[in-house]
């Protein structure tokens, strides 16, 4: 009985939260379906009087969103995979080995995130130019790695710490080496954390504006976020187009989340079978 009351309460709270979460999306959709003229009506119309898909059509006809999606996907996926892999390795090292410099290094890794990005623009620019990586996707991935990697290391440290150490021992008795323990025991058991980390890095790279707008310059390097941000400017503002971009721009991330959710929710069980 009490349990049911709890469930009802939780459901009500979630519904309330959903209103807060979904309201902006609802308004984004309504605005995206309006003509620009109607979007600027006072007071606003709750529902488009003449619904139109123009804003969505423009994305694929007048602007090259196919290319932008390609750029964003390649850059964000590479960043996500690289940073969670390297971060997980580092986190395993920090978690399982008595490193004298451990606290210092973990602190250092966090400190690297404290310099405001604006100050990194100039130096990164010079570094990437010297390496011939300015205005390339590789250059961008490197820049993102420096932001995502520290976060990935910290997140994975938190998750790997929660994996019982006895499992390592058991695997060692079974003849597993360090890397074997990491790959067969620790990683599968911290799979939910790995998924969260990957998602985090992906979204961070996907949503960036600072690096994309300073470390690239050509039209062929434009990402989805940059393209969306450019619909609101000094000499050009188009609200329906912006909202359409914001809605469509989020889809790949949602697909990624849905794809990863399986491991995210069943991490423990799946890992246990392998372990």
């Amino acid at each position: 009985m009490r349990r049911r009351a709890g469930t009802v309460l939780a459901t009500a709270a979630l519904l309330l939260l959903s209103v807060y979460v979904l309201f902006p999306f609802g308004w984004m959709l309504v605005t995206a379906l309006k003509t620009e003229q109607e979007a600027l009506r006072i007071p606003s119309t709750w529902w488009p009087h003449q619904p139109t898909l123009d804003a969505f059509v423009v994305m694929w006809t007048r602007k090259n969103y196919a290319l932008y999606f390609f750029n964003s996907t390649v850059i964000s996926l590479s960043t996500a995979v690289l940073s969670s892999a390297v971060g997980a390795l580092a986190a395993y090292g920090f978690s399982r080995f008595p490193l004298r410099a451990g606290t210092f290094l973990m602190g250092f890794i966090l400190t690297t995130q404290m310099l405001p990005g604006v100050l990194l623009v100039g130096p990164y620019f010079r570094m990437l130019s010297a390496l011939g990586l300015y205005d390339t996707r590789t250059g961008l991935v490197i820049a993102f790695l420096t932001i995502c990697l520290p976060f990935a290391t910290w997140m994975m440290k938190g998750f790997i710490d929660s994996v019982p150490r006895e499992l390592d021992e058991a695997a060692r008795v079974d003849g597993c080496g360090w890397l074997g323990i990491f790959l067969r025991v620790v990683l599968p058991l911290s799979l939910p954390g790995l998924v969260a980390t990957t998602l985090f890095a992906f979204l961070l790279a996907w949503g960036d504006l600072l690096w994309v707008s300073t470390l690239t310059h050509s039209e062929s390097m434009v990402t989805v976020t940059l393209a969306i941000a450019r619909t609101v400017q000094e000499f050009y503002v188009n609200w329906p187009e912006l909202m359409a971009g914001a809605l469509i721009g989020g889809l790949p991330s949602i697909v990624l989340y849905l794809a990863l959710q399986r491991w995210f929710v069943q991490g423990l069980t799946a890992g246990a079978v392998k372990g």
């Binding site: 979204l203 996907w206 941000a229 949602i254």
Partner: peptide, 14 residues
């Protein structure tokens, strides 16, 4: 679980 995640996929500028 999906709904509560949604705002995160929107870049902070956007």
């Amino acid at each position: 679980r999906v709904v509560a995640l949604l705002p995160w996929v929107v870049p902070d500028v956007v």
